[in-house]
Design a binder for these strands. Structure first.
Lengths: 145, 145
DNA sequence: CCACAATGCTATGTAATATAGCAAAAATAC
DNA sequence: GTATTTTTGCTATATTACATAGCATTGTGG
């Protein structure tokens, strides 16, 4: 079934449309992941930030933002939150920039995050029938730019 | 590349994770569609509601909500907005329920919506490499429930 | 008939994302 | 080396989707 078939057949409703299905699947996935992260008091975007600064210790706020497509304006309160929770520290690089680095507690939480996220990702893939599975990520990446 | 490979290789960053890629793809898609619908002053969820009541003229607010997974509480302001825009009317069924029906203007807008959405869906599918394309919707539907 | 469920709704909160603007510092162009 | 432009980090605020709690009324099944 292609989009125009889906639009004019009332069988599947809007769920026959890939764009609509994409939205619904993403919502369900986000709710699932948010639930899993709630137990460690983190939001989805918090965990994404912690994951990227887990690799490098010299990333600035705007670099993190570029990687995750989070705008500078939104990074500020996000990092404030992580700093209040003692998960990160801001360390001056020069008089303008600052590195965002994990604290000890942040490093410990990151281990948990990695476990939770990995399990989540595996559960997600497991729900996709095997023959479609290898095509899923490549298709998404084509849509991401 | 499977999730655990992706989590511990810094090549792809988080975009190697299907869940993260799903979120990013959905965001990009939503922004695109929202932009296309902005020209006719509609939100994505507005257009979804108009599309479902285009098929039947006897749906109540809560039935629409069930189909689209929009909660009753959120249907009220949404329908208010569509009613102010003269796109729908609420017609009493009994003293409790009411049918949500398209006005003449709503019917005209629906034609535009269908055109815009169909074009959007086709553009979306066109961005996915052909070999992955047939697997995309089935995979998403497996994740939706 | 009466307990229970459904309907439509208000009020409110949360999360992700967006825009506009700003001061200071750094990078660059000349 | 000074001048212009860009970058950085930030505040304030708005938008959109979605969530929870509660409520009065009405319909329905035992």
């Amino acid at each position: 079934m292609n989009p125009s078939e889906a639009m004019f057949s009332k069988n599947a409703g809007l769920t026959g449309l890939p764009g609509y299905a994409l939205r619904r699947a993403a919502n369900a996935m986000m709710a699932d992941l948010a639930g899993r992260l709630a137990s460690i008091d983190l939001r989805i975007s918090d965990s994404a930030v912690l994951q990227v600064i887990g690799e490098r210790t010299d990333m600035t706020s705007s670099e993190i933002g570029k990687v995750l497509e989070i705008q500078r304006a939104n990074m500020a309160p996000l990092l404030d939150r992580l700093e209040s929770a003692q998960l990160i520290r801001r360390e001056p690089i020069d008089r303008k920039s600052q590195a965002v680095v994990l604290t000890q507690h942040g490093l410990e939480q990151l281990a948990t995050i990695r476990r939770v996220v990995l399990e989540f990702e595996e559960d997600l893939m497991a729900r996709i029938p095997a023959r479609h599975r290898p095509h899923f990520l490549p298709a998404l990446r084509a849509l991401m730019d």
